[in-house]
């Protein structure tokens, strides 16, 4: 176990050092990605300046929501997205067969050897929005609310990593998964807005089978003391438990697909 952990840490260090060889490119990538997100957030800000609220959420509350969503996503995606998005090419090209004969778990190898530090822009933007919004939304700080903030962020990162793992695992069986990532991101975009503005069927979906509602909507609602439909008083616990439960489900699904993997052919 100790050797495995040190190997994974070594893989991460190698990856980071490689990426840091091109520092200017890295800074441009951070700026560009931050700018891309800022464009969408500006659109939301414009709606809020003109209409004052979206489903009862003011701009400072939405800023906290968007910051939380962006930061949670970045923390999960830096370990998974770029590495697993190309899973169908890895499978069809036969690279996955080679990973299977290595003395390390193939998922762990893919995830840690491809650790992506290009999410700096997301992290800075997410943190910036949270730091700007927190003093304005009147949260009464206590140990449970601090736990909700940090635990909710970790849970959000877990949900992101789990969803990406589940989608990529489909490539082990179907040999195609890239278009499923498109679908994942369509639901992910839904989770950038308070779930309460959607029809009940989508609210339920975001709180159950597609648990992206726990990325920001549930934890930020709990922090702000807003009621969460369907969850009620159970919302704080559900928010913290959603991430670990998603990890367990994703691990089970990965193993399920791995057992049915028959090679990429060719």
């Amino acid at each position: 176990m100790r050797e495995t952990l040190s190997l994974l840490f070594y893989l991460v260090r190698l990856r980071v050092r490689t990426r840091l060889e091109f520092r200017a490119s890295l800074v441009i990538a951070w700026t560009a990605q931050g700018f891309g997100y800022a464009g969408v957030f500006t659109s939301i800000w414009i709606i809020l300046t003109r209409f004052e609220n979206i489903g009862g959420w003011s701009w400072p509350q939405m800023a906290l929501f968007l910051g939380f969503h962006t930061l949670g996503y970045a923390l999960g995606a830096c370990f998974t997205l770029v590495q697993l998005r190309g899973m169908e090419e890895i499978v069809r090209g036969g690279e996955f067969d080679m990973l299977l004969v290595r003395p390390i778990n193939p998922w762990a190898y893919l995830v840690f050897s491809g650790f992506n530090i290009e999410y700096g822009g997301h992290i800075l933007l997410g943190l910036g929005l949270i730091v700007w919004a927190l003093p304005q939304v009147g949260i009464v700080w206590s140990l449970p609310s601090a736990l909700m903030l940090f635990g909710g962020l970790i849970s959000s990162a877990f949900i992101t990593a789990s969803c990406i793992t589940v989608v990529s695992a489909c490539a082990l069986v179907l040999q195609r998964a890239r278009y499923l990532f498109g679908l994942y991101f369509d639901f992910w975009e839904l989770s950038r807005y308070p779930a309460s503005i959607f029809a009940p069927v989508f609210q339920l979906a975001l709180l159950t089978v597609i648990p992206l509602g726990y990325m920001a909507y549930v934890p930020v609602s709990v922090l702000l003391g807003r009621p969460v439909p369907y969850l009620g008083a159970f919302a704080p616990f559900a928010s913290l438990a959603a991430g670990p439960l998603a990890v367990l489900a994703a691990a089970a699904f990965w193993r399920f697909c791995l057992r049915r993997y028959q090679g990429g052919g060719g």
């Binding site: 560009a32 700018f35 891309g36």
Partner: peptide, 19 residues
């Protein structure tokens, strides 16, 4: 990749696509 993100941010607002 970076150029793509810059353009995405620019068009998200200035095309009037969402708002």
């Amino acid at each position: 990749h970076s150029l793509e993100w810059f353009m995405r941010g620019l068009l998200a607002v200035l095309s009037g696509g969402l708002v």
